[in-house]
């Protein structure tokens, strides 16, 4: 089986092609504000490097968020069109799932993304099992939850804003992520959508729920 992985939920392009338990080609590069400019051309290089054609892919795993709204849509658009074009199975995972799958530890893991104004996107995991579902949560509430666990835990974050001592940096292990989530149920490409975990400000102000993510 051949898997294509893509995550553009930050300013990094994380993408790779995994075949028979090996990473054939991957990229982990910070493109800053130019992520949209280079994503497709860099993926073209991955295929050249791995000597595969897009049609050789059996399943696409795309990170659906949370993270940079604009960033997510780049990888998500690519993945949707890719899956739709060649009728390739596609499944989504969250950026927090990708983070926790990249750390090899038996401890409680807390992938963490800053969402500003005292809020974060976070989930709590242990051995790949979910202790607290991925969500948009007030940091203080999250800390409460963790303190009540009665176990050691480690944050996963690259954000320098978080100065915790018990933290791992995030460097995606594309092989591990793929292996952990490869059997996720395939979704109709039409229905694949980013996970924002948060309404837009306009929607919040209006108090209406157009998107019930």
């Amino acid at each position: 089986m051949t898997y294509f992985y893509i995550d553009t939920s930050s300013s990094y392009l994380y993408s790779g092609i995994v075949k028979d338990g090996k990473v054939l080609a991957e990229i982990k590069q910070d493109f800053n504000k130019e992520l949209s400019k280079y994503t497709v051309s860099e993926i073209e290089k991955l295929f050249k490097e791995s000597n595969l054609k897009p049609i050789d892919i059996d399943k696409i795993i795309v990170v659906a968020g949370p993270g940079s709204f604009t960033g997510i849509r780049i990888g998500m658009t690519f993945a949707k069109i890719f899956a739709w074009s060649y009728s390739i199975d596609i499944t989504t995972i969250t950026s927090l799932e990708a983070m926790q799958a990249s750390i090899n530890s038996k401890k409680v893991l807390v992938p963490l993304i800053d969402a500003r104004r005292g809020y974060v996107y976070a989930g709590v995991y242990k051995n790949g099992k979910v202790l607290l579902k991925d969500q948009y949560i007030e940091l203080l509430k999250l800390e409460d939850f963790l303190n009540n666990l009665g176990e050691d835990y480690f944050y996963i974050t690259n954000d320098k804003k978080f100065t915790y001592e018990n933290k791992f940096g995030y460097n995606p292990d594309i092989l591990n992520i793929t292996m952990m989530y490869k059997d996720n149920k395939a979704i109709n490409p039409h229905l694949v959508e980013p996970i924002y975990l948060k309404l837009t400000e306009a929607e919040e102000n209006l108090g209406s729920m157009i998107y019930d993510n």
Partner: peptide, 13 residues
Amino acid sequence: LVGVTVAKTLAFL
């Protein structure tokens, strides 16, 4: 960006 990414993806595929 959505439209441009669609176009680039189709052009590539």
